[in-house]
Every structure is written in C-alpha cells, then in structure tokens.
Computed example of a mutant assay.
Amino acid sequence: MKPLTITSRLEVYDSIDEVPEDIQELMQKAVEVRDTAYAPYSRFKVGAAIYLENEEIVVGSNQENASYPSGLCAERTAVYYAGAKFPETKILKIAITAKSLRHKVVSPVPPCGACRQALAEYEVKQEEPIELYFMGETGKVVKADSVKDLLPLIFDSSCL
C-alpha cells in the first residue's frame, strides 16, 4: 500500500469587492441571469457567466422540471451553450452565484458533481485550466484556478 495525498489550493475573498474588476463584472452577469432561473421546486436559483477567449460572455441559469433528472444546472446550461455556439473557443473564467427563495445564502456555493465533471471535460478538451469563482448571494467569494482543484481525480477519455 502506498498513500496518495491530494491537495487543492483555493483563494477566498471576503466579498465581491475584493475580486478583480473583470470578475466583479462577470459575477454581475451571473447575478442578473440567476434571476431568470426556473426553480419552482427547489426555490434555489443559480446563475453562471462564462468569459471566453474571444471576449464573449455566455450565461446560463438553472432550469428545473417536475421530472427532476430532466432539469439542468446553470453551469451546464452555460457551458453547453458556449460549446455549441463557440465550439473552438477556450473558456477562460466562469462566475457562479446562488440564491435561495427560502433563506439568505451567505456561503459560497460550488458547482455540483455533475457540473464539475462537465466543466472538466471542457478543461481537458482545451488543454488549459478554467478559473472558477463562486459565491452565494452575498459574502465570501472562492476562486479555484482549475476545475481540477474541485475535482482532482477527473474521469476523462483516458479512462475509457
């Protein structure tokens, strides 16, 4: 037996005011699209804004369905749209924000496992890391330099 130690380095900002100005603007786009989320069941709205290498910004919000597996998270809505509209363009940064209609969300909300896997696929495809910034509706903002910081043992085509 040989132990395997995995570490991740994340940066935590006390508020949105501390992140670089371009990230503040990207997060504002995520906040705006968060309000378009269709979340009548969970009452939990998520917005994602992706900054592409061609300087385009693509956004997405979560879209629920009474048949729960049929819904889609904000991050995947945005990344799949970016992949369809700009298939050869690299994803540089993504900003994610979440809000509950039941209580105030003050802790950073990272992407779910399915979204981490979807984002990892694009990171592997473009052979370059994607910066992630995530937050609740207020409070701290967490930055990961790469999807691999959130999902270190990714499943990719090398596993097939």
Rank of each mutant, 00 (worst) to 15 (best):
S146H: 04
N65H: 09
S70W: 10
L92I: 10
V59K: 15
V59A: 14
I50S: 07
A82F: 11
L153Q: 14
I50P: 08
E127S: 14
E121F: 13
D22G: 06
D22A: 08
V12Y: 01
A30Y: 07
L72A: 12
I154T: 13
P40C: 08
Q126D: 00
S146G: 11
K29G: 05
N65T: 02
V19M: 09
E25Y: 04
I6W: 10
I6A: 12
A95F: 01
L119N: 02
R34P: 08
T97A: 13
S67Y: 09
V142D: 10
K140L: 00
L92C: 06
R76F: 05
V19Y: 09
P87V: 04
L132S: 02
E131W: 10
P110I: 00
E32Q: 12
M1P: 04
A49D: 03
S67T: 12
K104A: 14
G71V: 01
T7G: 10
A114V: 13
G113A: 11
L150R: 13
V142I: 03
E128L: 00
G136P: 04
P40A: 03
E53L: 05
A84C: 08
K143Q: 13
V19K: 08
R76N: 15
K45P: 01
V124T: 14
N62V: 00
G60M: 09
P129C: 02
T5D: 13
S100T: 01
Y41L: 15
C115G: 12
L72W: 14
I91G: 06
P111C: 12
E137Y: 03
M1K: 09
V59E: 15
K125I: 06
E128V: 01
G47Y: 11
C73W: 12
A78L: 12
V46D: 03
D35S: 08
I130F: 09
I130A: 11
R116E: 09
I57R: 07
E123M: 07
V12F: 00
G47I: 07
G71H: 02
L72N: 12
I57V: 14
G47E: 03
S8H: 08
E18W: 04
P69K: 01
L4D: 09
A37H: 05
E137T: 02
A48Q: 07
L132D: 01
Y51M: 10
P152Q: 07
D35Q: 13
Q63H: 14
K90R: 11
P129K: 07
Y122V: 03
K90L: 06
S100P: 06
H103W: 08
C112W: 00
